[in-house]
Design a protein around this nucleic acid. Structure first.
Lengths: 219, 219
DNA sequence: CAGGATCCTTAGCGATACTG
DNA sequence: CAGTATCGCTAAGGATCCTG
């Protein structure tokens, strides 16, 4: 029996939380915002969720019309994907991402999935508007993504492109480290923790796009 | 106990949910968005939360820098209020409200606090831009609010105003019913479930501001 | 082997009662 | 009024075990 506890409040917020307020629900939505994914891909993207909870959430989200399971639009017949209504959560999820970035850093060991780092890229990046438009191909945790920098924004899409300036293969966590400290790029290339093909300066532009202008830290 | 249940994910969304993802947290933020409130006021606004859970959440939100308790800015010294960072959740909460309004209606008995109906007012209202600017004074569940309709938007503020076109006193749930069915206004006046002073047509404009243009309802 | 279902333990939740 | 204390319940976490 999946969850059925409700806030019993007619407010739109409470009704939204009745649907996506349970644990892990919004992180599943985060993952599916980027691309439809299968059960095992979601497990890999959210390594700390147990399989029963994930199955419960997926069933619940499907029953509530947030995601869809079967084949639709001739896609992967086993992939979970957002419905039209579910996709409307995108601004909310992005807003949460932007807000959470300002949270105090937990000092604990954390994971970082491909979805995490890509959403972070889109949300936190403020690339130099005067820099040349750049297209990077990312091979992140076994999936390929295309990242475009142009006009002060970063856009991520699932899948290949034909016109990349550079290609980068790395673990999500490694890329996260580089985003925090772009100066480690050469070292990472040298020790093989990442692999770059093409124009290295394109990767450098990507990394510097998310360098934030000095966080105020007053408690 | 090592961690008090964290997602252990460096993603901004996960870190946001570590702070406001627990049950009731975002509904507390919803209430405090309108005005600082005391413990008993929050209990009244969220009738289904038990006192220990409310106390836990408030302590947690305070520890995480979302709300503040003591006296600040010469306000009610016992009221909880949002910090500057906490207030930045407003677009997220409003986004959730707008999304949740399109959720299928739960048939169960639901509550409706003053905060609920006021956020709904601000979020769902699309007043006629050609109608005259209107100021209503609302006495809702023992607190006074000022509602302004102007230029196609509705703005709610806590407290009195000096220039109201009309004043309305009602229970939050009664107002919710009227917003769903404005034609019941005369009946409600007659049977005393609401009390109107001043220009009744101002109240009528307020009620019609949220009448939505025919919901699509396809499952 | 992907895609779950089942079992067991723990921690968070809900309701009520109680206290400074 | 502003919370604590207590207790039964249920969801989450973790591992293992089916099933196609």
């Amino acid at each position: 029996m999946p969850t059925s506890r409700s806030y019993r409040d007619s407010c739109g917020i409470a009704r939204a939380l009745d649907v996506v307020g349970e644990r892990w629900a919004l992180l599943i939505v985060r993952e599916l915002l980027l691309t439809p994914q299968r059960f095992s891909e979601l497990r890999h993207a959210l390594p700390h969720v147990s399989s029963n909870v994930l199955a419960d959430r997926l069933r619940e989200l499907e029953n509530n019309g947030v995601i869809r399971h079967g084949p639709a639009e001739a896609d992967d017949p086993k992939a979970y994907q957002l419905t039209e209504w579910g996709r409307k959560l995108e601004p909310v999820v992005r807003g949460l991402a932007g807000w959470g970035i300002d949270a105090p850093q937990p000092p604990e060991p954390t994971s970082l999935s491909a979805g995490s780092v890509l959403i972070f890229l889109e949300e936190a990046a403020r690339p130099d508007p005067t820099a040349p438009p750049t297209v990077c191909r990312l091979d992140l945790g076994g999936r390929v993504w295309t990242v475009r920098l142009a006009e002060g924004r970063v856009q991520v899409r699932a899948g290949e492109t034909t016109t990349a300036d550079a290609s980068l293969r790395a673990e999500p966590k490694t890329l996260g480290t580089l985003l925090a400290d772009p100066s480690a790029l050469e070292t990472a290339c040298a020790d093989g923790s990442i692999a770059v093909v093409g124009d290295l300066s394109a990767i450098r532009r990507l990394l510097h796009a998310v360098t934030r202008p000095a966080q105020p830290n007053s408690p």
